[in-house]
Simulated scan of single mutants.
Amino acid sequence: MSGLRVGRIALCSSVILTGLLLLGGGSYMQAKAYFAQYLIQQAWRQTLEDKQPHKPWSWADTYPVAKLTLMTEDDLGNEDRTFYVLSGASGRNLAFGPTMVQGRGLQTEGGNRIIAGHNDTHFSVLNGIKAGRVLKFQDADKHTSLYRVSSTQIVHESDTRALMPSYYDQLTLITCYPFNALQTGSPYRLIVRALPV
């Protein structure tokens, strides 16, 4: 066997091995993300049973405080996407799901409920959302409320009016804008406001 042929075989083997390692790493991350969602769902079920906060895993610094469902556009009886809203709006918690920005713990009733999420994962469904779309919000008391999107607005991150408390019941969803940006860290935010049906 010539040295050139051995070199080609070694190069092909290393390319295949590198590809398998990258594929395995990506598969591991996907499996970890799905398993985390399963654990968060189980923690939410426990919370609905005893109305106590339950961490999805022992070292978590968060727990689910609500369930948010985006209904399909054409049929209010059909659910499009469901999210478990987590306590504490930190970057670490946002990696696992939308987070409650205001209102700590399981007491989320009334006022301006502000929920933030990443635009490239959980809140990617907000891309192109229009007024009239219905959201379903469930709290730890098993109380379910319907909200209809009343407006969407793109603002600079320095515009904090969406974070102001409110005397009337509303949901405010916040994510970075634009969607599908090539770089992270955009200074713009999409604000989706929804009022009770």
Rank of each mutant, 00 (worst) to 15 (best):
Y38E: 09
Y38V: 00
L39W: 02
I40W: 01
Q42F: 00
A43W: 04
W44K: 10
R45I: 02
Q46K: 12
T47H: 06
T47Q: 05
L48T: 03
L48D: 04
E49N: 09
E49C: 01
H54T: 00
K55T: 00
P56N: 04
P56W: 03
P56G: 08
W59M: 14
W59Q: 13
D61S: 13
T62R: 07
T62H: 04
Y63G: 03
A66L: 09
A66C: 11
A66G: 08
L68A: 08
L70Y: 11
L70G: 08
L70I: 11
L70W: 07
M71A: 13
T72F: 03
D74Q: 15
D75C: 15
L76R: 15
N78I: 15
N78F: 14
N78E: 15
N78K: 15
E79R: 15
D80L: 14
R81N: 12
T82R: 12
T82Y: 09
T82S: 13
T82E: 07
F83C: 10
F83D: 04
V85K: 12
V85D: 13
L86A: 11
G88H: 10
A89N: 13
G91W: 09
G91K: 13
N93S: 14
L94K: 07
A95P: 04
F96H: 14
F96P: 06
G97L: 10
P98A: 03
P98V: 02
T99C: 14
M100H: 02
M100R: 13
Q102H: 08
Q102K: 11
Q102S: 11
R104M: 02
R104L: 00
R104I: 01
G105R: 11
L106T: 10
Q107G: 07
Q107E: 08
T108Q: 15
E109H: 10
E109S: 11
E109T: 10
G110P: 00
G110L: 08
G110T: 03
G110N: 12
N112Q: 04
N112H: 06
R113G: 05
I114D: 03
I114Q: 09
I115V: 12
I115R: 11
I115T: 03
H118V: 09
N119L: 12
D120W: 04
D120P: 00
T121R: 05
T121V: 05
T121Y: 01
T121P: 01
F123N: 10
S124L: 12
S124P: 00
V125L: 11
N127D: 09
N127W: 05
G128N: 05
G128E: 03
G128P: 09
I129K: 04
I129P: 08
I129Y: 06
I129Q: 09
G132Q: 07
R133T: 14
F137E: 08
D139I: 04
D139V: 06
D139E: 01
D141Y: 05
D141Q: 07
D141N: 04
D141K: 08
D141W: 05
H143E: 12
H143P: 00
T144Y: 06
T144G: 02
S145V: 03
Y147P: 13
Y147S: 12
R148D: 00
